[in-house]
């Protein structure tokens, strides 16, 4: 399935590699067949522009691209729904509206939103906890929306920030739900909805973050070059990481005529 299934074929490391270090990363034979027997530091074994720049490349370990718009837009929409719900609850906590809607637990929502736990958090965050949550959901949408469809490779920092926003938020939401039942003793329907959304978001966002972490691990494992890892993390391009990425992902087969069109469609906008 993978484009380069033969890890035994290796090429010499480029001159930037650590002295005395074994060139342990492999570039398997490509269609052009130029991988073996290159001079160190030469441009041989380079990945093609198509491999390096195909925006619909599919990273390990999935059989789809987790950075595709079809994967990310639903996350953004769901996060914005949670943002609106949290904003509504914040409006109540600010007393810009007089009551909070709850179809199941009646006035218990208001008890939760005015609870001691909530008041305490307000002293820490300076803003009502619902407003703080709303900003975090907004962050999910922002970081879900930014970046190209190959950002697991091109902008790892963005995917990691996205994960840092989504995953702890899901955990915090779950903890707050437990606190509702145990400490406050009341239930808040909309809080439960947002907590559920948070957990779904964790599930939906996980695949992309995982691919990104695996790719960074691969860069480290094959080069042991911390500066290269740093450069990769911040979205710098390097022939060595291009090669690693080309092995890490596969480009869906398609005829030449549709390549350009796909590229334009994927890169369009903003």
């Amino acid at each position: 399935m993978w484009k380069n299934p033969d890890p035994a074929t290796s090429i010499r490391a480029s001159r930037e590699a650590e002295p005395g270090e074994e060139p342990d990363y492999s570039a398997a034979t490509r269609n052009s067949g130029d991988a073996a027997g290159e001079e160190p530091g030469s441009s041989g074994g380079e990945v093609s522009e198509e491999e390096a720049c195909a925006l619909d490349a599919i990273p390990r370990p999935w059989d789809y691209n987790p950075s595709a718009w079809s994967q990310r837009i639903p996350i953004c929409i769901l996060a914005m729904v949670a943002f609106l719900i949290a904003t509504y609850m914040a409006l109540y906590q600010w007393r810009l509206i007089g009551s909070a809607w709850d179809p199941m637990f009646g006035s218990q929502t208001e008890k939760v939103l005015d609870s001691q736990v909530s008041e305490r958090m307000r002293l820490w965050f300076l803003i009502p906890d619902a407003a703080f949550g709303a900003i975090a959901y907004l962050g999910d949408a922002i970081f879900g929306l930014a970046g190209s469809t190959r950002r697991w490779q091109y902008r790892p920092w963005m995917v990691i920030v996205f994960g840092i926003d989504v995953i702890p938020l899901g955990i915090v939401s779950a903890v707050l739900v437990v606190l509702q039942g145990t400490v406050v003793g009341s239930w808040c329907f909309l809080c439960l909805v947002t907590a559920l959304i948070s957990l779904v978001l964790v599930y939906m966002a996980f695949d992309e973050v995982w691919s990104c972490l695996l790719y960074l691990r691969e860069v480290w494992r094959k080069t042991h070059d911390s500066r290269l890892l740093w450069k990769t993390f911040w979205g710098g391009r390097d022939p060595r990481t291009d090669r690693i990425a080309a092995e890490f992902c596969r480009v869906p087969a398609r005829d030449r005529a549709s390549r350009g069109a796909t590229g334009v469609a994927a890169a369009g906008g903003d």
Binding site: Y154, R237, D270
Partner: peptide
């Protein structure tokens, strides 16, 4: 231009 790849990877298509 966050939706486009970083400068290093911008191809003619992008």
């Amino acid at each position: 231009n966050a939706s486009a790849p970083p400068a290093g990877w911008r191809t003619r298509a992008a």
